[in-house]
Design a protein around this nucleic acid. Structure first.
Length: 603
DNA sequence: GCCTCCCGCCACGAA
DNA sequence: TTCGTGGCGGGAGGC
């Protein structure tokens, strides 16, 4: 099977509706930069100063100093401004009298005052990332070398606006301006938010880069569904919790082929030759060939969404999704995506693009740079199918999440009216609690629940296309459902999507060990079931089902075409291809409050 | 010398 | 005509 026959970008923009996705991934990506990232960030600092600057850039970093001004009010004097995407002030060194490592921004101030007491007329500090590297090198046995090697060269960028001078200390080191870092900062800005609109120029300004770089990132993010273009210069941030859906769409797209196409994404020129190979499909060869109306991805010919960078990104990801290896050498990636080519200019262009893509995907923590068995540079795919699901887990039902989720909870509850018949098969908080405590509280009721849950799993999976395998999976789930003991108290609390907002509030107040345990178990069961299905997706997928889905989607043009097995319905992915009219109707499990909320939403 | 990837030119097309 | 967009490749940094 040629993984790369499809020339067109798989449309993932409307693969599923936004749902109540519990996205630790979003938090992880947006809140915890890697060591490298943290280190790189130290190169960028900005100061809001009210004095003339004297800059001295040397190999030890950038020495910054300004007139202290004895008659200047303290509030007007030196202020080190640490903004979101720049240096964390841990890495500021005071140059008095010798280099002294100041562990925090706060700790910097006593030193400043001390200087004043000594009636010195200047305040100087040195910004460097040496501190961070010292930390990193602890235990390596050679900190000096590390520091020396990692020290950066700095330059000052002066900006003036509204009469205020602002100086940004910017490293000249290439890695500090990389797409990877830029993408990470981009994610920091919007990672946790959903449906937030942004403008390219606005982001470029925030990240202090040219628009062109933002387009690079946005095009990649768009191809994996994280952002959606609304209009010129105007995008909507969908959130990194879209990634699992995209991965599923990409994986499925290999089997369903052109069924995935949507009019908005596939317009012309997708003429696939039966004998097409990866070579023929390569981006470069597409450009090279003066083909007579054959598949081309040349700019401005295809649909606007079929951007070369986007298509290449999806093929890059598919490569990992379809490979049995989690580590693929970069040379192999080049060969598979660009074909066997001479190292000519054209192929270099393609390679450059692959580097761009890899850097951005690295920032998304989908891949990481590594080495393969023979030391070649390679990329490792970081997510397993189960990991996709874990993206949806939640560490704790914090207030923040509660607040963020409330609106979506209501909407998802609305969506789940349609699968109401499935709800009794799922454990609700109180039920889960009882279920967990089958031996303590009410054994008979709990046993009934257990049987009920087991039966429901069987029923659900029995209705899938591949009854045998999924039935087996369901039995496994039932077995595991009896193994509630041993769940770590700090285990994540998984919130099924049909949980209402009031449920969430309830969860917040009732975060007992038992509840977390039972919900964790609940999640584990579903993960097993889902991953089992996912694993057998190619075998269980029936084209006839996709065709029927297509017929549904014609009446719902914005829906996706991807058929979804019924067992998905137990997973909090609302199925846009589900026949809403036939399955909606039973609302008895929906809380009254949420019914009202739904009404408001609809109105 | 090769690998990596940042930078910005410039063609295209929408506004 | 302006300007957003994105393909593309030069060339610098790093090893």
């Amino acid at each position: 099977m040629d993984l790369f026959q499809s020339q067109s970008r798989v449309s993932v923009d409307s693969f599923v509706n936004p749902v109540e996705a519990r996205s630790n991934y979003a938090k992880r990506v947006s809140s915890t930069p890697t060591v490298d990232t943290a280190a790189r960030q130290t190169s960028e600092t900005s100061e809001s100063v009210s004095a003339d600057l004297q800059r001295n850039i040397n190999q030890q970093g950038a020495l910054w100093s300004c007139d202290w001004g004895s008659n200047r009010a303290e509030s007007q004097t030196v202020r080190v401004q640490v903004n979101e995407a720049s240096i964390d002030a841990e890495n500021i060194k005071l140059k008095d009298p010798a280099l002294q490592i100041v562990p925090s921004k706060e700790a910097c101030y006593p030193q400043r005052y001390k200087e004043r007491e000594k009636n010195t007329s200047s305040f100087r500090f040195q910004a460097t990332d040496a501190v961070r590297y010292e930390e990193r090198s602890l235990g390596t046995g050679c900190p000096g070398k590390t520091i020396k090697n990692e020290l950066n060269r700095f330059s000052w960028k002066e900006e003036a606006s509204r009469g205020t001078k602002r100086y940004s200390l910017v490293s000249n080191k290439r890695g500090y301006k990389s797409l990877s870092l830029l993408c990470e900062n981009f994610i920091k800005l919007y990672g946790n938010h959903s449906n937030e609109e942004f403008f390219v120029d606005q982001v470029a300004r925030l990240l202090n880069v040219g628009r062109r770089r933002i387009y690079d990132i946005v095009n990649v993010l768009e191809s994996i569904g994280i952002v959606v273009k609304k209009k010129r210069n105007h995008y909507t941030w969908q959130g990194v919790d879209r990634i699992p859906f995209t991965l599923i769409a990409l994986k499925v797209s290999n089997e369903v082929g052109n069924v995935l196409k949507q009019p908005s994404s596939y317009t012309v020129n997708t003429v696939e030759s039966p004998s097409s190979s990866s070579d023929e499909c390569s981006m470069s060869s597409q450009k090279d060939e003066d083909s007579e109306g054959e598949t081309q991805l040349s700019p401005h010919q295809n649909d606007q969404n079929d951007k070369v960078l986007g298509v290449l990104t999806q093929r890059f990801i598919k490569l990992f999704l379809e490979s049995n290896e989690s580590v693929i050498s970069f040379q192999e990636i080049i060969r598979l995506l660009l074909g066997e080519q001479d190292k000519d200019v054209k192929s270099k262009t393609g390679i450059r693009r692959l580097y761009d893509i890899a850097n951005i995907l690295s920032a998304l923590q989908l891949i990481q740079k590594t080495q393969n068995w023979n030391g070649e540079m390679a990329y490792q795919w970081l997510l397993s199918e189960v990991t996709y699901l874990h993206m949806f887990k939640s560490n704790k039902p914090s207030e923040e999440k509660n607040a963020l989720s409330r609106k979506r909870d209501i909407s998802s509850c609305t969506e789940y009216q349609g699968v109401e018949h499935l709800k009794p098969k799922l454990l609700r908080p109180n039920e889960a609690n009882e279920f967990c405590h089958s031996t303590d509280s009410n054994p008979s009721v709990s046993k009934d629940l257990e049987v009920s849950v087991a039966q429901s799993f069987q029923n659900q999976v029995a209705s899938t296309a591949n009854q045998e395998e999924t039935h087996e999976a369901s039995m496994d789930c039932c077995i595991n459902a009896n193994q509630v003991q041993g769940v770590v108290p700090s285990a994540y609390t998984y919130l099924p999507n049909w949980f209402t907002a009031s449920n969430l509030l309830f969860m917040n107040n009732y975060s007992s060990y038992e509840l977390r345990s039972s919900l964790a178990e609940f999640q584990r069961n579903i993960i097993q079931l889902w991953s089992r299905w996912f694993e057998h997706l190619p075998a269980t997928f029936k084209l006839e089902r996709s065709e029927s889905s297509v017929s549904v989607s014609t009446s719902l043009p914005n829906m996706n075409f991807i058929p979804v097995p019924p067992c998905w319905s137990i997973w909090p992915f609302p199925q846009s291809s589900v026949d809403v009219s036939s399955s909606y109707g039973n609302n008895d499990v929906v809380d009254e409050d949420d019914k009202n909320s739904e009404g408001k939403l609809r109105n």
